[in-house]
Simulated assay, not measured.
Amino acid sequence: MNLLDLLFLIPTLGLSLAVIVPLTGVLVRFRANYNPKGLQLDNEGGAQPHTGPVIRSYFGMMKRVYRIEGWAGLYKGFMPTMLSTLIVTLFILTFLDTPKTRHGAYRPPETGILGSLVYSVAMMLISLPTAILTYRSITTPHKLPYLQLVDNLRILLTPTERRRPWILYLTPGLLAAEVFHIAIVVLGLGPLRRLLVPALSQRTEQGYGDISFIKLSIYLIVVIFSTAILTPLEVIATRLAIQRNHASSEYNSVSQEVEGDAEETAEFSGADEDVIGLRHEADPYLGLIDCAKRIVDEEGWMALYRAWWITLLGGIGSAFA
């Protein structure tokens, strides 16, 4: 990568992040919002209604974020998103790109289905810690100054996670949700796309080749059905990513540590109300299945399909990428 590429890369990334970060932040908050449908029990066993915010749509969440926190709230998570995007992009352009693709859209190496699966899982493992930090930055009620990295990490990570950062990979159910998502896309949608609409994978300067309307319709139907599986996995992954890991004598990553794991954090941002409700850390999700079951039992099955249309648009868009 030469200097001209770098000079072109920086403003391009800045412009794309200016659009993507607010949209992603709203999506993460909408899917992370804990909104139980039933009565909750207080410390004495008495029933009390849930008093957290009730947001029923993506754009309703966007309006709420802007009303309570303004533009600063919409751009929560900008710094970790920018750093992770810049690092991954530079890595790809430096080590994985070729002269033929450098000035166009990047495509992963053509290594077959299993090679694509390994490549996708590897990229997920590389980006997972920054994704966790980004999701937590978006959902925390605290202000996170852009240039105070150490203080921000003390808010976003527990002492256990700071001492043993690899425990982020052991967050119950998170890796399973991510791998299942990748497997469906790479092992399912990828081969079907090449089988039914191979012309979409062979775009030239003149455009696409001959595309069968029937086969394209079949593939789009498959994408619609895959959305029914991918959306719950994305919602579950969001919930698990923001669930902080605490230590215990048995090194159970979801148990509360008795001492030393409850340090004071920065003061609340000053808003009179929380943008979203979060599940109490003392009662964590225990894994992928447990998370799905509790979401359905506590919030209803529709909570698993929040912003399903974004997943659908992403699937349709990837077919023509």
Rank of each mutant, 00 (worst) to 15 (best):
P165N: 13
E264R: 05
R163K: 14
I155Y: 09
I218E: 05
P198W: 06
T204V: 05
G173C: 07
Q202E: 14
S253T: 12
Y169K: 04
F180W: 06
I224W: 09
G277V: 09
T171D: 01
G173M: 03
D261R: 04
T158R: 03
V254Y: 12
T204D: 14
E259K: 04
V185G: 01
G188A: 06
E259W: 05
A183G: 00
G207R: 03
G207I: 07
R162K: 09
T238Y: 01
L157Y: 08
G277R: 05
A271I: 03
F225W: 10
D274Y: 05
G190P: 02
L174D: 06
R163I: 08
P172G: 05
P198S: 06
F268Q: 13
T204H: 05
L153N: 02
R163W: 14
V223I: 09
V254W: 12
I224T: 15
A228C: 07
E178T: 07
S255F: 06
Y208P: 01
A176F: 09
A266G: 13
D261G: 10
W166E: 13
E205W: 04
D274C: 04
G260V: 02
P191C: 11
L200T: 13
K215E: 15
L196W: 01
P165M: 09
L153W: 02
L230S: 04
E250P: 02
L189E: 04
I211E: 12
E263D: 14
T265V: 10
I211Q: 08
A176E: 12
A241Y: 06
P159A: 12
L240G: 15
L189I: 12
W166A: 10
L233G: 14
